[in-house]
Design a protein around this nucleic acid. Structure first.
Lengths: 157, 157
DNA sequence: CAGTCAATCGAGACCGAGTCTCATTATCAA
DNA sequence: TTGATAATGAGACTCGGTCTCGATTGACTG
């Protein structure tokens, strides 16, 4: 796990807690340090494991209680790719309008931005009487590497 | 539940079963009659309930075993909108390239087609080294009706 | 620095969609 | 009809996630 300096994000979240009159506990600190100490996407279970390395008293319940606060603050992005778990992106504040492509076979996720796509989505939504809250283009695909290998289940790309 | 005449779809599925040396059982008949006897999207649990009205011996396990066969045959489309259940579209063969917008608040689903969107998706995927297997644009949005009402949880649109 | 008390905690029961097992039943080709 | 075996139902099980409840603790007060 890399340890980028996302002090700004961490401080923003602490301010978010204070603003909502929520307490800064040792467990929340451990979770927040973990979240903003990585660049990687992660699942709730991964976060639990990593946070416990910093403070073994962190419980599953607290992780699941803290995750909604992190997404509500806008600093972490929650994604659902139709697998049976959700994926979280701790790097969201830096590039808030990105979409994702996921490889059905090896779970590789690639992020991209496209103004053209955003425009088209907004146009269609408006025409149909919706106002876009969030959009998620999910392209289930096979990545090139996989086509070469024939099979790439859980391979490290 | 409307009862459209989707005899063609039903026969195609029976042919699909035969081709794979799978048996045509009374339970499968009940399930298939149910699926192709409606235009509506449905969940696995709804299908179980409806199929049991035709044949009370149909079990949950058989419904869950038959659904993958229906999607594999290409006659029914499985969708995942990030809720904790999947949604099935029995009308898929008639319009196979459509996308969906879902209202986060009232679960209303609207289908639409857009060649421009399909092209853009393919272009982006290719550029990033993926070959598209299936694509699903999921726009989580609020529908107009809801904005007017202020709140529309589970309202019938 | 002690006192207060609601916010927060951990453990584990619980939930619900979906899967799996296994003994029994039913399909269908011969 | 019969035999091989696909398919069945009941219910145990899995697993991500939620909820409950009694114990703990952060943060403010004096």
């Amino acid at each position: 796990m890399p340890t980028p300096d996302r002090t700004a994000a961490k401080e923003k979240f602490m301010a978010f807690l204070e603003e909502k009159n929520l307490r800064i506990t040792t467990q929340r600190r451990a979770i927040v340090d973990t979240v903003f100490g990585t660049d990687q996407h992660f699942t709730a279970e991964q976060l639990l494991e990593w946070a416990r390395e910093r403070d073994e008293s962190v419980s599953r319940a607290t992780v699941y209680r803290t995750l909604p606060l992190l997404t509500e603050s806008g600093l972490v992005h929650e994604m659902d790719f139709g697998k049976d778990y959700k994926i979280y992106d701790p790097n969201y504040a830096d590039h808030p309008n990105h979409n994702h492509i996921i490889c059905d076979d090896c779970d590789k996720i690639v992020e991209f931005e496209s103004d053209k796509l955003d425009e088209l989505e907004n146009e269609i939504s408006h025409k149909l009487g919706f106002s876009v809250k969030s959009q998620q283009l999910r392209i289930n695909a096979s990545c090139e590497e996989m086509k070469k290998l024939g099979e790439c289940k859980n391979k490290d790309h």
